[in-house]
């Protein structure tokens, strides 16, 4: 366990240091989503929608970065490492892959939190969005649970994507917008029929965003949405368990079939 945590720390360090050493990346990561969010908020203004829709879109849009981070920096990461020839090095080093995955998740979550905060704060300032500041503590708890379940899901993807070849990027693209749509990043998910609302509850992003909206915009308290917390804890445990099992399976299969290295190496 101690060994795994050390590996996780090392991997997270590289990710945090690598992403933040150039401040222009941070500016771009905050500024670019802001263009899209602004367009959405202007659309709501054009529709004369109530203020809660604008606030709702602002909260949802700030979470988009996490989903893309899951897809491009978690799910496809081992595939890229394989392409660059690093994966066999990871395995020969004796570092547990679970530790590497955990480090990737922690580093990615930290980086994206800085960016999500930047997007949210600027959106609030530019569009004069009002949020319930007294709900910050339960929101923080909900946010952390959302991240833990989201990145556990990312660990499942990372393991299973090892199987794929060049189609990895296409799969990522296919998982991008559909999940953002089903998670209701720009609108409350109660616009969906009940059956779809129940179905999307297995997506941590949808649960997290909806919970945050209830707390920050609709002024509900912790007890009103306790089921969201419970669901996210449950999803974290289930996803993490599946991820660890799957990773072991993929690693073993890779050793037997020789798919850990590239064909032409």
């Amino acid at each position: 366990m101690k060994h795994m945590l050390k590996v996780a720390y090392a991997r997270a360090y590289v990710r945090i240091k690598g992403t933040n050493r150039d401040f222009t990346h941070y500016i771009a990561d905050v500024f670019l989503p802001l263009l899209g969010v602004s367009a959405i908020l202007f659309a709501y203004k054009a529709l004369n929608a109530p203020e809660i829709y604008l606030a709702s879109a602002a909260v949802g849009a700030s979470m988009i970065a996490f989903w893309y981070n899951i897809l491009w920096s978690m799910a496809s990461q081992f595939y890229w490492e394989k392409e660059q020839g690093n994966l066999p090095l990871f395995i020969t080093s004796g570092a547990p892959l679970t530790g590497i995955l955990l480090g990737m998740a922690l580093g990615g979550a930290f980086n994206m939190t800085l960016r999500a905060l930047g997007v949210l704060i600027l959106t609030i300032l530019l569009f004069n969005i009002k949020l319930n500041s007294s709900a910050l503590l339960p929101t923080l708890g909900l946010f952390l649970l959302t991240l833990s379940s989201l990145y556990s899901l990312g660990m499942i993807f990372a393991s299973s994507f090892l199987k794929f070849g060049r189609s990895v990027s296409k799969i990522n693209e296919l998982l991008g917008e559909p999940i953002l749509f089903l998670s209701g990043v720009y609108f409350p998910i109660n616009v969906f029929p009940l059956a779809i609302q129940i179905l999307v509850s297995i997506i941590p992003l949808a649960l997290g965003i909806e919970g945050m909206r209830e707390l920050l915009i609709l002024n509900k308290n912790f007890y009103d949405i306790i089921w969201v917390y419970i669901a996210l804890i449950f999803l974290t445990i289930v996803f993490a368990y599946i991820a660890i099992k799957l990773l072991k399976k993929m690693e073993n299969e890779g050793r037997i079939t020789g798919s850990i290295t590239l064909k032409w190496e």
Partner: peptide
């Protein structure tokens, strides 16, 4: 759909 549901919601 992501954009159209803004209209649907409002």
């Amino acid at each position: 759909l992501l954009m159209l549901f803004i209209f649907v919601a409002a």
